[in-house]
Design a protein around this nucleic acid. Structure first.
Lengths: 226, 226
DNA sequence: CGCGTCTTTGATGCAAGTCAATCGCCGTGG
DNA sequence: CCACGGCGATTGACTTGCATCAAAGACGCG
């Protein structure tokens, strides 16, 4: 891990991030004033569940997995975060402890915003408070979605829903590129990699073609019925 | 369902609720000024996923299940809420749509707080914004906990953890009363009732005795090891 | 071209859901 | 007071979905 300065590209991503993107430009510029940046290699651990942290993290590039570990060492993903996404935001309000561990799933660049300063801003500036509230609402909804998927759907159904969520509702046929390795997708969906593979091959008969990271949907409606 | 006025007992519960309890007394008194109250019988639906709602709900007495339904009609619980707990708080910030359905799991009394007024307060009063932020942080953590439990632990382990979470860490032996029917507990843990039953009987050999709603733990440490 | 890594496929085992039958508890009414 | 009926809880038998282990196949990169 190496610490460095903010490039102008980094600034652009920060300003469009799921948190700062909700703020008026002047405010967000002020917030990133003292941001720090660090680079991490694949598999670097950013923090562990229970660690004391007082920062909010933003992915500038790369991929971060948020997970909990069971006592046998297995890791269950709670979220997979891409450029522009924010994480660990509740730690700064909740006893300054990480509620999960975080690890780079590929080489990544991460920005950190000081927790104390953000808390001050949240009281003095209603826009900042509002942005936090909306961010947290989205976070809750994300996790609720995951939980509901886990409890209601089988592996092929979860995969179908994931594909559909990456698919514009207009067109009947469509194709897109997975934003990460199948390995990581499996984790995000709460599946073993083998189960993901089998799910894909079951979906082939509903018109889903997988080649490498490219996913092709021949008939959106066949998938929805699934 | 019947609408009625706030009793003084209701007020006391509201003021200690997970949301209003974080506010200075003068503020929280103002917030509940225009609260409305309604009673519901067991199995009454309060709202369905996707319904337009612009209120925050507080359980005054009884029990409410928050759930999503799969397309086969099965219901997966996202939370089970008791007196003093707040729900649907993110709807008022997130497009005024319920992200889940809610149903009384037993006869219940529910208070409603006007969404528009709360949003106004959240911008004008930093304390209110802060209370929302903390509430949402807790909500996220709750759901994350559930997801992690589902993904990392077997049924008996989840039940053991549930028991431990109702158990003071000091004493080695302990007993308590389930706050609701086993049926409901099963739903909350993401299990079929039969699976919960089997889990309990597996835990008997670790010193857990179940009689009706009473749970008795003979040796806390045996459970922790499980 | 060859090697390592990611992915797929196959075989097997276990956890939990489902269906069905029984049990226990409690309240009702004879 | 006891018999009955109803409902929640338990138990058993079976099925299913997924994890796991092992091996082979595909892909990318040096």
């Amino acid at each position: 891990m190496k610490t460095l300065r903010l490039t102008s590209n980094d600034r652009a991503i920060l300003l469009k991030s799921s948190f700062l993107g909700r703020l008026p430009r002047s405010t967000s510029e002020a917030v990133i004033e003292d941001a720090t940046v660090s680079t991490h290699e694949e598999d670097d651990v950013l923090f562990r569940q229970g660690d004391g942290i007082d920062e909010v993290f933003v992915v500038l590039s790369g991929l971060v997995r948020l997970y909990r570990v069971g006592k046998d060492g297995r890791e269950a993903d709670l979220a997979v975060l891409q450029a522009g996404e924010v994480f660990a935001e509740s730690a700064i309000f909740l006893g300054h402890h990480a509620t999960a561990s975080a690890r780079a799933a590929e080489a990544s660049i991460i920005a950190r915003l000081d927790g104390r300063r953000l808390r001050q801003l949240a009281v003095s500036n209603p826009d900042v408070a509002q942005a936090f509230i909306e961010l947290l609402c989205h976070r809750s909804k994300m996790v609720e979605d995951l939980l509901a998927q886990d409890r209601l759907h089988t592996a092929p159904e979860r995969v179908a829903n994931y594909i559909l969520s990456n698919c514009p509702s207009g067109s009947t046929s469509f194709s897109f590129r997975l934003p990460f390795q199948k390995n990581v997708l499996a984790g995000k969906l709460g599946l073993a990699p083998e189960a993901l593979s089998r799910a894909f091959s079951k979906l082939r008969q509903s018109g889903v073609v997988v080649r490498g990271r490219m996913i092709e949907i021949r008939d959106r409606h066949a998938l929805e019925r699934f």
